[in-house]
Design a protein around this nucleic acid. Structure first.
Length: 420
DNA sequence: TCCGACACATAGGA
DNA sequence: ATCCTATGTGTCGG
């Protein structure tokens, strides 16, 4: 399924873009016979699939709907000979031996990286099954084959050996010795635990979230898993996004991006070497691109959402395995009817094939205000492209691990309201 | 105001 | 066709 390739045309405008990669240290290949070779670039690829759509130029999704995120990372130059890797953390200057790499996804409030927002992952049973936070999944780097294009974006091909179609196994290629893990993982059935304050309404500042795709390195003592110690090596934030807390009916005409029932979704790939958009922060919510409001949702209803406070926790980047994920449910899912989840095999494909959804509709909702909820399924919405990105925070070492940190709600507001 | 839970509706697949 | 699964969405109650 998936990914990769269709980027060029329109595909990528279907999903929220990502900002550039932020690293927290550097990696080095260690060769006993010669001198160490530095890894010039750590790249994180991620595709936020399903669930998001553009509304008034802003990437939006419903808190209650699922979205999925395909994650992978690559090192340049690639570790062709499976050399041992060392990681030197920028902040401390300390160098560690890396035994494994893993990725996970988290979310933070825009302009407030320390405020994490919990993500929840459901099993196909949804309410009848357990929920958990996305787990850290061990992955091996995906080798990239740079094409000759200097411009990057989309110009690199990733080798996928096996991924075969993705579904069944989804394991991509095993290219690295460090455990020979899959090179890609799809976090499926993810939801934000809470909505952004003021989702979509004007009147008060709109809060935004960012999905954060993180790359961690296990520098723990090798032999025992107990001693795993994970450091956040790099992360890549998505464009800012609005998470609506209520049903679509409250927003009148809208649509969502994909996910209709069934496997399917759009897909595009965002990752690539060059970040695509310059990060820009908005001190404001930037304006929307010209297509501005194709979607119309007008429903002034609320005022502000207040907030509670925000905790700022800044944990250090080290997290032990236990702390982080094992918080209660370790992977919780025990049943994966068809799908995946790691347990021993992670993976994705299993469950949901996603194919590109073709339609992007170009139609504009013609009515703006009827309240007929009956329209529950419209499929239009624009999918333009990048909403606006926001700031790349310096680096954030965030918390990453707890499950409920995220309780802080609302905190980053924007000073501006959207125009009216 | 917002969120969790329950419940219904529906697209796809078996 | 018929049932079942997965998932979007309405709604109520806290």
């Amino acid at each position: 399924m998936d990914n990769s390739h269709y980027n060029a045309g329109k595909g990528q405008t279907n999903v929220p873009p990502l900002q550039s990669v932020t690293t927290h240290g550097h990696l080095t290949y260690v060769n006993s016979h010669s001198q160490p070779t530095p890894v010039d670039k750590i790249d994180i690829q991620g595709t936020i699939d399903k669930g998001f759509f553009l509304s008034e130029g802003e990437w939006t999704c419903y808190r209650r709907n699922y979205f999925s995120c395909i994650c992978s990372f690559s090192l340049d130059p690639p570790n062709l000979h499976n050399l041992p890797i060392r990681y030197t953390q920028t902040a401390s200057g300390v160098t560690y031996d890396v035994f494994d790499f893993a990725m996970t996804i988290t979310a933070v409030v825009s302009e407030s990286d320390a405020h994490t927002i919990d993500l929840v992952q459901h099993t196909p049973k949804r309410d009848k099954g357990p929920t958990s936070q996305p787990e850290r999944v061990k992955l091996s780097p995906k080798h990239i084959v740079p094409s000759s294009h200097p411009l990057g974006a989309g110009m690199y091909a990733y080798n996928r050996l096996a991924g075969g179609g993705a579904m069944g196994a989804g394991y991509g290629d095993y290219s690295q010795a460090q455990g020979a893990h899959p090179t890609e993982h799809t976090f499926e059935r993810i939801q934000f635990k809470q909505a952004t304050a003021n989702n979509g309404k004007r009147r008060a500042a709109q809060q935004y979230y960012h999905l954060v795709i993180e790359l961690h390195a296990n520098v723990g003592e090798m032999g025992r898993g107990v001693a795993d110690q994970w450091l956040r090596v790099a992360h890549r934030k998505s464009a800012k996004m609005i998470v609506r807390g209520r049903s679509p009916g409250h927003y009148q005409s809208e649509r969502r991006g994909s996910a209709s029932s069934g496997p399917g979704g759009s897909s595009g790939t965002l990752g690539s070497y060059s970040g695509q958009v310059p990060d820009y922060n908005g001190g404001s919510s930037i304006l929307t691109p010209s297509y501005g409001n194709q979607t119309y949702e007008t429903r002034p209803t609320h005022h502000y959402g207040t907030n509670h406070r925000h905790h700022e926790m800044q944990i250090d980047q080290i997290m032990s395995a236990d702390q982080c994920k094992s918080i209660d449910n370790t992977k919780g899912y025990q049943y994966y009817p068809g799908a995946i989840y790691e347990g021993h095999d992670h993976r994705d494909g299993g469950g949901i094939p996603c194919f590109p959804r073709n339609d992007q509709d170009t139609m504009i909702p013609s009515l703006s205000r009827n309240s007929d909820l009956s329209i529950s399924r419209l499929k239009h919405e624009n999918e333009g492209q990048l909403p606006s990105l926001c700031i790349p925070g310096p680096n954030y070492l965030g918390p990453g691990c707890n499950r409920y940190d995220g309780k802080s709600t609302s905190a980053g507001y924007y000073p501006i309201s959207q125009t009216s």
